[in-house]
Design a protein around this nucleic acid. Structure first.
Lengths: 216, 216
DNA sequence: ATGTTTCCACCTAGGTGAAAACTT
DNA sequence: AAGTTTTCACCTAGGTGGAAACAT
């Protein structure tokens, strides 16, 4: 259709903090989920190329279970083992990046981070957090949706509240998957290497930095 | 034109924190402006009624000088006195509310606050702050711009980056002025009653609360 | 003299992992 | 036993007015 950027454009997305993600992925990334909602660390940070500078795009993310298995962490082998299956969960929510919709211009100007996204295990959550089950493996997906030119007013960028994207026209949606962003959900860290890497890299996380002593 | 809400709709905007603004206005509201940019306190908090729930609106604010006078504060009479005129300043910037554009539904659901707006005296500011001159009197104006239905995707709300609205079609713009929001710009408070009221009401401002002693 | 800038102690607001309490 | 929730000390991030330094 006219006014809609199409897949055939040379659009590409790069995971900016790829190295950090891979460091976690080597060990086995764990994400804490809580009732109140917890950020992901690392967060997904993207670089865009090849967008039409004047077309509007909506950027969204969802997180799909990679299988129906429940996993448990086996300490002596430092591995996650499948431990039974669970029933199918409710359809995943979609988190719309708060800068959406924005012109290609805006998306390409600087790296875009999903740092406000929160994960929860509370099925009743009404704050737009993504609802996941603990002790399961998940794979985030990025969706870029082309939605034509914004009419009439030349406002540079647009930011949506948290919302859903349902019934999208598939031809205008590009989906990107970064395998290094897969993770296992937990309510408390299982692998101490993960804990240490989070403490080392997340500015908000300062555990027992010096010794093996507690704060008290 | 079709799809555009019109002035004839029974649209109204209420200043939610009217009482606080009037308390300041009685004394003579002062707003600190800095090079780096400073928030307004109070901030402008609005309630919307009568919008078309499914039409999109952009909400914006600008701040106009009320005259060409420069003012100085006369301590012994606790009054602002005109003290010479200044040349015409550059055309005022417009600050677009970061939730813009959003559907009438979203604007009406809860009070909308311009709490991210910052004022500066730096003419070279490139962060979208509103540029004002110190020791002048100003009047904020609210602009509500109807821009039709957002096409194709049913995203609930949109938030723009800081930007300008130029060349708007006047028929679709409603402008609201709250006289109690007028203020004088300063780089340091002149009237100590203003200082005290800010300290009392602004949660971020904690001056010498107990006595007349300094922190040191 | 008068107005501005810089720096800072003091706040609010909220993101962390650890530990203890709780649940099943 | 295994997993979840709650609480909390410790952080980052950033909004205040005061005081001193600076500028004109």
């Amino acid at each position: 259709p006219p006014n809609i950027a199409h897949k055939s454009d040379q659009i590409s997305i790069d995971l900016v903090n790829k190295e950090l993600w891979r460091k976690f992925h080597e060990i086995g990334t764990e994400m804490i989920i809580t009732k109140a909602g917890r950020r992901m660390f690392p967060s997904i940070k993207l670089n865009f190329k090849g967008l039409d500078p004047t077309s509007m795009y909506i950027l969204a993310i969802d997180i799909l279970p990679v299988d129906n298995n429940r996993y448990r962490y086996v300490y002596h082998s430092s591995q996650w083992m499948a431990a039974g299956t669970t029933e199918a969960s409710t359809p995943p929510r979609t988190y719309v990046h708060p800068d959406s919709p924005a012109s290609g211009d805006v998306w390409m100007k600087q790296p875009i981070t999903f740092d406000k996204l929160k994960l929860t295990n509370n099925e009743q959550n009404n704050k737009g957090h993504l609802i996941l089950h603990s002790m399961h493996k998940y794979q985030p997906r990025i969706h870029l949706i082309s939605c034509g030119k914004f009419p009439k007013y030349d406002v540079i960028s647009y930011v949506p509240a948290v919302g859903r994207i349902d019934d999208v026209i598939r031809d205008d949606v590009m989906t990107f998957v970064f395998p290094e962003c897969a993770f296992t959900t937990v309510t408390a860290y299982q692998n101490q290497q993960i804990t240490q890497l989070k403490i080392d890299r997340n500015p908000f996380a300062k555990g027992f930095r010096d010794s093996n002593k507690s704060w008290k």
